[in-house]
Design a protein around this nucleic acid. Structure first.
Lengths: 216, 216
DNA sequence: CGGATATTTGACCGATTGGTAAACATTACA
DNA sequence: TGTAATGTTTACCAATCGGTCAAATATCCG
């Protein structure tokens, strides 16, 4: 008699790894495009090219799929912020943070939308991650920025809102892609809109944070 | 014999106006919190305090409710951008645009999330509005900004991405409210986080756009 | 090979979905 | 007041939802 759920076996077989990978890939497609509630297991099954009961053999519930996906993506998603270096040159650190975040918006828009959908609807499944690991990381990096402002390396400003503004401006190009495309028109359908965005954002943030920049 | 749908009558009665108002108010609550696909007519009916068939007496379908809601909210939503004045002082125009948008994020977060949900999921119901009225308005205002940069009143920059960055930074406080709260912690649970944001964003944008600001 | 284990599927379940039909209640107005 | 039009509700529908089950099939390994 087979052990009812693959998850309960201790050693994972080759097939298990492959299929779980396939499922999570499909789940990312669907969840990021329609949100948790708007997605159905059948849709994920179709994208994955498997039958619905087969999905449920690897993940007991729809929630389990979603959770596995979140767990898998969250760590990498925060990587750019983690790379923020206290020892580095502030201007260059901020510039490269913006660049990395923009690259992620361009190369991993589904991951961005996955979180956006989740947070937008009240973050029912990732509240703990937000208040725990995320807050901790941001607190830490905010302290770094605070030190920069204190020492006059960048203009005095609220480090939390600085981080928020970098998040929002960069992720905007993933989360609101259709709107950006609609407004820019088809002449900017290629990837050059990310280069334009990078140019603008670097100018905005570097200019806006320069310590010798004139104050209102 | 009753005319099957209120919508088909030419003159709207007092009851029709009241009930449609009630329904759209409830629909805004539900659609903004769960997105179109994640919302159910029953949920809207419960919030509105009416029976499901009664809702469907005033709006034939779930889509009709959503459309009526979008139509109602879109115009006011674009009001701040429309107020952007070519004759005004650039610095003050941008400053007050940021302030207005932040006030809307604070006072009308549901409206912001309604559009965010819609755009995030590919804007299946408002594609025409994006490519039509929205694009037109942005094109027009981008031209105003372009004139300002040409005349050296603000630093040379891409006007479209400037508008995008103002949208994203301000709406972030409505759309990603739970994340902002989680990161800031409960000490910023009140409205003062909007004041902090306003201070930071004005500093960022005014500093970053000043024509005499040092260039990278 | 052969049997144990792991994987896959079709048929099915109760709950919920968007929406309808028709009986019933209320309102407006001559 | 009477009656036609408007408004509301109960009961219901087919389709779809997340999930189960048992039987069928594929794989692994001695």
């Amino acid at each position: 008699m087979a052990i009812p759920r693959a998850a309960k076996t201790l050693r994972r077989t080759r097939i298990q790894e492959e299929k779980e990978e396939q499922i999570l890939e499909a789940a990312l497609d669907v969840f990021s495009a329609r949100g948790f509630r708007g997605s159905t297991i059948d849709q994920i099954a179709e994208v994955a090219g498997m039958s619905k009961p087969n999905l449920l053999y690897y993940f007991r519930t729809k929630e389990a799929m979603h959770r596995a996906l979140i767990d898998r993506v969250l760590y990498t998603w925060l990587e750019p912020l983690r790379a923020f270096d206290a020892e580095g040159n502030p201007e260059e650190e901020i510039r490269s943070y913006i660049r990395r975040k923009l690259e992620m918006a361009r190369d991993f828009p589904r991951e961005s939308r996955l979180f956006a959908n989740e947070v937008l609807q009240g973050a029912p499944h990732i509240e703990d991650e937000l208040k725990g690991p995320l807050k901790q990381l941001v607190d830490e990096k905010a302290e770094v920025i605070r030190a920069w402002t204190k020492s006059g390396k960048i203009v005095e400003c609220d480090p939390y809102h600085l981080i928020f503004s970098i998040w929002s401006t960069t992720q905007h190009y993933a989360d609101f892609d259709v709107q950006v495309r609609a407004v820019l028109g088809q002449e900017h359908a290629g990837d050059e809109r990310f280069e334009d965005a990078a140019r603008f954002l670097e100018q905005l943030f570097i200019g806006g944070l320069r310590p010798d920049s004139p104050r209102p």
